[in-house]
Nucleic acid binder design. Structure first.
Lengths: 190, 190, 190, 190
DNA sequence: AATGAATGAGTTTTCATTCAT
DNA sequence: TATGAATGAAAACTCATTCAT
């Protein structure tokens, strides 16, 4: 329970200051616990980040996976993924801020986060399925398609994180529509 | 000349270790110069990063701007931008690695790099122009479109940086084609 | 009983890592008990060391004292002391390792371990007795003689502890013979 | 030069407080330099100790080696070694205090200090030489003899370090005489 | 008796920056 | 220009000890 308080505090602090700049003492203070307790539960600052990311990506990856396995047309499954990802910004902006700011910056992290790979694999699977049943264009490599779609989503959230793109309810709704219309739309056969 | 050696070394070191983790002494060692010389030419570690980024984005931004101003159909101008961006990976992967790892995620940096804003504005201008002449769909906000396209490009380069996407000549060519087909294709009116 | 398990574990851990480097948690883990139990039985890390040393030196000192009081020629009593000391290596190497590594070098400890002083006094008493009855040379100061003999024994055990001197049965037997021949032999009148 | 000041300060501080208990800041303060300079010259606290020990043992080992190579009877060479070692206490008690307190406590150190091995090898060589020319008893293993002699010397210096044995000029002279009479005397053929 | 979560002072180490030469 | 010694603030991490249960 105390452990969870620390984890939640870490999300806020890492999101606010970035991993390198954040101090372990900031996390402890934010969680309202003593310094050493962070080291009692996690062995190091690095381990805290890893735990946070496991958590976050774990939730996101399983949500995406569930959609990927749903008995729906590929296009619709992609649309649902777009909504899940973009809405996570509303649900927990600090978490998204953290994912956006840190993950790509630490290449090593990717290897230690199988959840990320799983999420990408799910996306890829949806695309491949859609190509198989003819609803999506076959010229595009499914893996590349997954990366492009993710890139568009990640960049939009980055814009929100940085305050460079509007993130009110209407703008979020519009972003959903437009990613679907543009990127998902760009993948469908015509 | 010595200054340029330092700048080039900084690109390599920042690309390899990331800004926070890189030491000024690493840069000096990589450049083969003495410690203090970095401070002689640049006033601080921060200033080195800024100089590096000005250089990098300056070149990219002016190339994009030139395309944006060309007397060509919007769709074709977008295609050229895609090629310019993705080919910069082949020309100077360390520079791209740096752009990917540091700049896009760093709030403070954006303010100090008008070149980035200029590049995004150019993209946005192309999209708005295409919507105006009817070649691109008007439902999508030009700014959001610019961010999505950039996101797809950035993510693909990230995949290359991380070694998660193939980056041989054929794969780079395919990526160009597929970003154009998918994202640019998703923007055109039909 | 639980207390004894902790004590035995402490011997092993102190022997392995040295007092300063050993952690209380190491001792608890080695003993298979909870953290706080060490503090329940002993009040502090220091007290654990002291208890261990009392035990160890207590046994050694009383054995030496018994020999010192035996109705035997001084030379033979010294020989027996040599055997007692060197054989304790076979009986409990960790204990010897601890004695060698920590106690002899720690000024504060000596004051708190009257057993050590008693052991040295016994040795000294044997030498003085031998000088009195004419069997040992009188030129040498009994106290210095005791320290030299102890030094030779301690160094040999150190060699064993460090794996720098062979410690198989034959080597131990040879060491006994040779300390007796050399140091004890060097003390006898001729 | 500043480096030497740090080294000399380290000898004093380690001698006074012991390696584990000594703080790097103590060394810096004792040397009258800034904190970081210790790390500028030596990479770590451990490296400081190692440098100190290299120095100290280097000098002692080469002195012993010189004696071992001298064209003198083995017995006389041993006597000279005894004097060299015991007189180093007068010359630099802090250094001896350090050697006595730390070296034997850190088994790993021995491997990193070839000088110690060299000193022991010199002693061993003298004994073997004496056995060869018939001046020393052949029953004793030269290596064991070297360790015994060293043990006697080390223990006497320990007594001085701990203030348990008198260390005035007369006592030092007596110690020399008595180690020679007893241990060296115990090695000679009769 | 027994547990192990919680505390926080104390230490090592790092490294950007300054400055005398 | 060029060097690298010197500085010291800042941060991660350790671990003996306490204490509620």
């Amino acid at each position: 329970m105390r452990r969870d308080r620390i984890l939640a505090a870490a999300v806020r602090v890492f999101a606010e200051r970035g991993y390198e700049t954040a101090r372990v003492s900031d996390i402890a203070a934010e969680a309202g616990v003593a310094y050493g307790l962070v080291y009692h539960y996690f062995g190091s600052k690095d381990a805290v980040l890893e735990a946070v990311c496991h958590d976050a990506w774990g939730r996101l990856a399983s949500a995406i996976e569930a959609v990927a396995d749903a008995a729906l047309p590929a296009q619709e499954r992609l649309e649902r993924v777009v909504k899940i990802v973009l809405r996570s910004w509303r649900d927990d902006p600090d978490l998204v801020r953290l994912l956006v700011r840190e993950i790509n910056r630490n290449p090593e992290m990717e290897d230690e986060l199988p959840e990320i790979a799983a999420a990408f694999a799910s996306l890829e699977r949806i695309v491949a399925g859609g190509q198989h049943d003819g609803s999506l264009r076959t010229a595009v490599d499914p893996k590349l398609a997954a990366w492009m779609l993710w890139g568009a989503l990640d960049e939009i959230m980055t814009g929100w994180v940085l305050g460079r793109l509007p993130d009110d309810v209407a703008a979020v709704a519009a972003a959903e529509r437009e990613v679907i219309a543009t990127v998902v739309g760009g993948l469908v056969s015509r």
